[in-house]
Design a binder for these strands. Structure first.
Length: 906
RNA sequence: GGGCGAAUAGCUCAGCGGUUCAGAGCGCCUGCCUUACACGCAGGAUGUCGGGGGUUCGAAUCCCUCUUCGCCCACCA
């Protein structure tokens, strides 16, 4: 669409948005280059504004969560760009180890194959091919919603550069003694066949059972234990009681015969046992429970692993259990205990069971050799950064969560038994006499100690190990690049609270460790997108909304407006997947309204617009300005201040709504209506009106641009003196100009609006035909108000459809039989009844209304006179019915009074 | 089991530490195709601001308590 094409009456974003985005991108407007001559002078501080996109999974499709997150980021980015900051918004994708591997394994499964059939190299190749195919989709989709990222700096966490950073970090931490390998209880996903970090386990409250079993004591008698996981009984290597528990003193040191397994195990005393839980006796299974593991260590107990990788019973258990799934084994074990008369009782018990965050399988605590990062030394500075105020959270209370996690941090299990990811850069010497373990930045082909053969660790690193580095790895670190110097640290991080610990906290820790500075100063955690039942939107639940559908049907601007105006700090965004119209039509309607105000203004400019005086882009009060002119300028100024402050405080909804109110309620509904005659030459002041409307509209477009970039760009370019060569996205942010503020005009015009509204109200109440004019008299409280109103008499007459307007300070001059309304300044407006109603028709109408009411009152009286109703119905209902009756009686009184005043026949 | 947040019109939410704060959008009702817009214009109805108690001249707004939702954390087997 060229600037000369006439604008159609309905805004249609189709095609237009993509075209504009292409132009912006081609012109490099989203790059932080400083050579845009048209870029406004930077406001202090001149530090670049850097925002780091939470990297979506490389194979992900855009969903509403992305839509929300990126809309917010883009609003902030565009706002700061217009304010003259050197802006970098760095986009990227995450290789998402487990998730991506799962996707490709699923595809393989359809062909009846597993990754083991293909072998590691071939499998990796397949994943790469898959990523290649789908990998750019999501970044392309981000363009569709207008995200103004710098696509030249796009990163992928498995890129060579970023992989180099990963090795650097691993080796540095290893050398510092902060990375170690060891055999501990870790969370194992029996479906993904890998270890998980604590954060990757989602605890869900489940209604389970607590079984009480009897273990026979060696030498007679028995002892009762309680467990939620009978299948691990076969791995028990002791029974523990609290050392001070008087009930069990004599048992300590004795032995019990473990049923089914038929082994003798000791009764030990350990203060980790809670005497109040269950029977006060706990079975100790060091290989399958973290607490038992600790107890086992203290008492040198055997660690007996009874399960396979995929959570079936292994060969260390009696033959009849071997190969059974853990839950089948559980049932069988319970049944056998029962058969032996050793099941004492079964209690209902609810506890939190861990699930894999990728596949939702119940996680098995399991003894395993894994790599860990010692977190305490990294967490302490990160906690301090928050306590010192170097990092702030929005909303603030999220900071407490962060602090709590940092204070109770546990070591991070970073090895994953996957094939898709950064392979752990550790080589083991095959020479058993040497056995050196080397972490290395470069691949090793021989042992640095003994020169013998080496083999690399088979495992890969947790995806988040690389994600945590992107604030600097994406800028070229470990090299000291110009980008790194210029853009680290960043400014704001915008993300969902779900990944506060996965990602945000770890970025802060690694940033402090390797860059000696926090990676960003503000963490804005926004809400979650939910459906009308407040369930989180997700593809698997089938309650998702595809943002691209919304873009197609309503436009990206409508999507962004909906999201931004509907989300306040610390609340969730509720959308109805079954009714897109309800959710997104307000945004579309606003875009269309804007479009039509724009069309109207543009088509009435009639040539070059005379610029008004003033250094800023706001127009300044001058003698030629009418009350309405001064009012809209003052409202515009208020809106500039309000929107700017709101954006600065992350209150994007407030900003959006402020501009919405200005454009729709003030500019369109009042100001444009008021200046129509002036524009059409019926009244003087046309030039002034054109100048004022153009400049206030220009300001409003710029204020709205961060939220609705496409439509504002389209309209803005058509304003006088502009063209395709210019872009609103790099136009200066509207400056506040104190001279434009005008409380007196706001007050006066407010009264005028009230007056017009009051007269319209009266007209509507009496059902006056739209084309019919009436007379009105305003009684003001003083001469000042009278004079002021006299100035605006013709305006009020037009807006309220009056044939005449008298203004007086004497109430005696108001008509006797009249409808009256009192305004907030104490003045009163009256309209003679004779103008409002046709006497005969009105009398008839009042009569019939009164008759209807009388009948209703009789019926109601009957109802309330009925004892059955009064005694049987709920008190609230009776009260309500009584209230109704009273209201009708009052109404009847009012009607009677009206009839009397009109002089209707009785 | 700890910690935190929320409860305001039928729906989604504002109301930013007391005194034009009882609001917006959607929905609903009435009337209008008024030469920018029916994705619109004008007018209108609706809430003892979750329950109870307290502080105060005055509270949706501050304090206490209860109820109901939601989130985070947690090795009670």
């Amino acid at each position: 669409m060229t600037p000369d094409t006439p604008l159609p009456p309905q805004y249609d974003p189709t095609g237009l948005e993509a075209e504009l985005y292409g132009q912006w991108e081609r012109r490099g407007l989203f790059e932080p280059a400083s050579d845009h001559t048209s870029r406004p002078a930077a406001l202090p501080p001149a530090r670049p504004y850097v925002i780091m996109m939470p990297p979506p999974n490389v194979t992900a499709q855009l969903h509403m969560g992305h839509g929300l997150n990126n809309s917010i980021q883009d609003v902030l980015v565009r706002f700061e760009r217009m304010r003259g900051r050197d802006v970098l918004w760095l986009p990227g994708t995450d290789h998402a180890g487990i998730a991506t591997q799962n996707v490709v394994e699923k595809i393989l499964a359809k062909q009846g194959k597993t990754r083991f059939d293909l072998g590691r190299e071939e499998f990796e190749r397949r994943i790469r091919a898959h990523v290649q195919e789908t990998g750019t989709a999501i970044l392309q989709q981000l363009r569709a919603i207008g995200s103004s990222c710098d696509w030249h700096r796009t990163y992928f966490t498995l890129d060579d550069d970023l992989s180099r950073a990963v090795r650097e970090v691993f080796v540095a931490l290893f050398d510092k003694g902060l990375i170690y390998r060891g055999k501990y209880i870790i969370n194992w996903c029996p479906r993904c066949l890998t270890a998980l970090s604590n954060e990757e386990v989602e605890k869900t409250e489940t209604n389970g059972k607590l079984w009480h079993f009897r273990y026979p004591l060696d030498g007679g008698g028995h002892i009762a234990i309680a467990t939620t996981r009978p299948e691990t009984i076969l791995g028990d290597s002791a029974v523990a009681v609290h050392p001070d528990d008087p009930r069990y003193q004599q048992l300590i040191g004795r032995r019990v015969r473990l049923p089914l397994a038929d082994r003798l195990i000791p009764v030990v005393a350990d203060s980790a046992v809670d005497p109040a839980f269950g029977t006060g006796v706990v079975k100790v299974t060091p290989a399958h429970d973290p607490l038992d593991f600790e107890i086992g260590k203290r008492h040198q107990l055997a660690q007996l692993d009874v399960m396979t990788d995929d959570a079936r019973m292994n060969d260390s258990v009696p033959e009849r259990f071997r190969g059974l799934d853990r839950y089948v084994a559980r049932k069988m074990i319970i049944a056998e205990f029962e058969g032996l008369g050793l099941l004492e009782k079964t209690e209902e018990h609810h506890n939190a069971v861990g699930h894999c965050y990728r596949c939702d399988t119940v996680v098995e605590p399991r003894l395993s050799d894994q790599w860990f990062v010692k977190m305490k030394p990294l967490a302490d500075p990160a906690l301090k950064a928050y306590q010192d105020g170097r990092i702030r959270f929005i909303p603030e209370h999220r900071g407490a969560e962060y602090a709590q996690w940092m204070q109770n941090i546990r070591d991070w299990c970073i090895s994953r038994q996957l094939w898709w990811g950064h392979r752990i850069p550790v080589w083991y010497c095959d020479n058993s006499a040497c056995g050196k373990v080397s972490a290395s930045r470069n691949d090793l082909d021989h042992c640095p100690a003994c020169n013998g053969a080496v083999r690399q660790d088979e495992d890969v690193l947790d995806t988040w190990f690389s994600s945590q580095l992107v604030p600097f790895s994406s800028l070229g670190w470990p090299d000291q690049t110009d980008d790194l110097a210029r853009f680290y640290p960043g400014s704001t991080l915008v993300t969902a609270p779900e990944i506060l610990f996965f990602w945000v906290a770890r970025m802060i820790m690694s940033g402090l460790e390797f860059m000696q500075e926090v990676p960003f100063t503000t963490v804005y955690l926004h809400g979650t997108v939910r459906d009308t039942k407040h369930r989180k939107m997700s593809k698997s639940m089938g309650n998702g909304i595809d943002p691209l559908d919304v873009v197609r049907l309503y436009g990206a601007d409508a999507l962004r407006y909906t999201v931004v105006s509907g989300l306040s700090v610390s609340t969730d965004l509720i959308l109805d997947p079954a009714d897109l119209e309800a959710s997104f039509s307000p945004g579309r309607n606003f875009a269309n309204k804007l479009w039509n105000v724009g069309r109207f203004i543009l088509s009435n400019l009639g040539g070059p617009v005379r610029p008004l005086a003033g250094p800023h882009h706001n127009v300044i009060a001058s003698a030629e300005l009418s009350l309405a002119d001064r009012w809209i300028i003052a409202r515009c100024e208020d809106t500039v201040r309000e929107a700017t402050a709101a954006f600065e405080r992350f209150r994007l909804n407030d900003a959006a709504l402020a501009v919405h109110r200005f454009l729709w309620s003030d500019l369109a509904d009042w100001y444009v209506e008021i200046i129509k005659p002036r524009l059409h030459g019926d009244q003087p002041g046309g030039d002034v009106a054109r100048a004022v409307v153009t400049q206030t509209f220009d300001v409003a477009l710029r204020l709205l641009h961060p939220v609705m970039p496409f439509i504002t760009e389209t309209l803005w370019r058509r304003l006088p003196g502009r063209g395709e060569a210019q872009s609103i996205s790099i136009s200066p942010w509207p400056a506040s100009d104190p001279r434009a503020a005008n409380p007196e005009s706001l007050r006066r015009f407010g009264l005028l609006q009230e007056l017009v509204g009051a007269i319209r109200s009266i007209r509507a109440e009496y059902g006056v035909e739209p084309g019919h004019t009436v007379r009105a008299t305003v009684v003001t409280l003083g001469e000042v108000a009278k004079t002021a109103l006299m100035h605006e008499r013709s305006l009020v007459c037009r807006l309220a459809k009056l044939s005449s307007l008298d203004v007086t300070t004497r109430s005696s001059e108001a008509p006797e039989d009249a409808a009256t309304a009192v305004l907030s300044d104490g003045s009163a407006v009256t309209v003679p009844l004779g103008d409002l109603v046709d006497k005969n028709k009105e009398c008839a109408r009042l009569k019939s209304e009164a008759d209807r009411l009388t009948a209703a009152i009789r019926a109601q009286e009957g109802k309330l006179g009925n004892d059955q109703f009064v005694t049987k119905a709920p008190a609230a209902v009776v009260a309500q019915e009584r209230k109704k009756l009273a209201a009708w009686r009052d109404q009847l009184g009012v009607l009677a009074e009206k009839r009397q005043r009109l002089g209707c026949p009785a």
